[in-house]
Amino acid sequence: MTDEPLLRVSALSKFYGSRVGCDNVSFDLWPGEVLAVVGESGSGKTTLLNCLSTRLLPSSGTASYRMRDGQFRELYRMSEAERRFLMRTDWGFVHQNPADGLRMTVSAGANVGERLMAVGDRHYGKIRATAVDWLSRVEIEQDRIDDEPRAFSGGMRQRLQIARNLVTGPRLVFMDEPTGGLDVSVQARLLDLLRGLVTDLGLAAVVVTHDLAVARLLSQRMMVMKDGRVVESGLTDRVLDDPRAPYTQLLVSSILQV
């Protein structure tokens, strides 16, 4: 851990015409820290995530990332080639729908190996050994390595997507509703797995979710968004146990009790 943040976001705004995607969002993300972004549908969570991951360019504001050499680089001033290189080496992006993040027509092993080949790995045996290792780390049986993700269940696909993203040892992972659409027991195992991986690898992550339980389990810090603006932010436990903004109080009190 260093005393400098990994990602510095300052006054980030994205407008779709006159509509607000996200407005004036600022925060720092530190190495090894998991930040949850919560809020209801349409609150600008995903827009913010897409801006941070440079999949969308913001209307105004800046975000700078501390590269491996310790230098801060402003994301929106990098060339497309540099951004795409960052995306497939130092970053990961876990989509809500695994089909968006996986190549559905190539085998699980090739899905995991693609990033390695993209950064110049040209030894089949080593690529495959790494793929086997990563499949076992995300609890996929080894004999499924040559199966296409189409033959996988939703939970397995999501785990495969995580393996595919983590294989190059990224330092920052963006996740968009990583447990969306999964049933609760599968969700629980996936969260357990994610929590383990994030701790083991010292990953920093920005997790977008509308599920406050996911936020509580995974994140140390959270931001609550409404209508594109951050209405409250702070330590996860503090925000959930002692919500201050009226909207956060509403959100916390709306959790269904079983």
Binding site: G109, E114, M117, A118, I127
Partner: peptide, 18 residues
Amino acid sequence: ALEEYGLMHVKLYEDIAK
């Protein structure tokens, strides 16, 4: 344009795997 050719090796990987 960006010389991103990792995908081409994915095809060859698939061949060897199959």
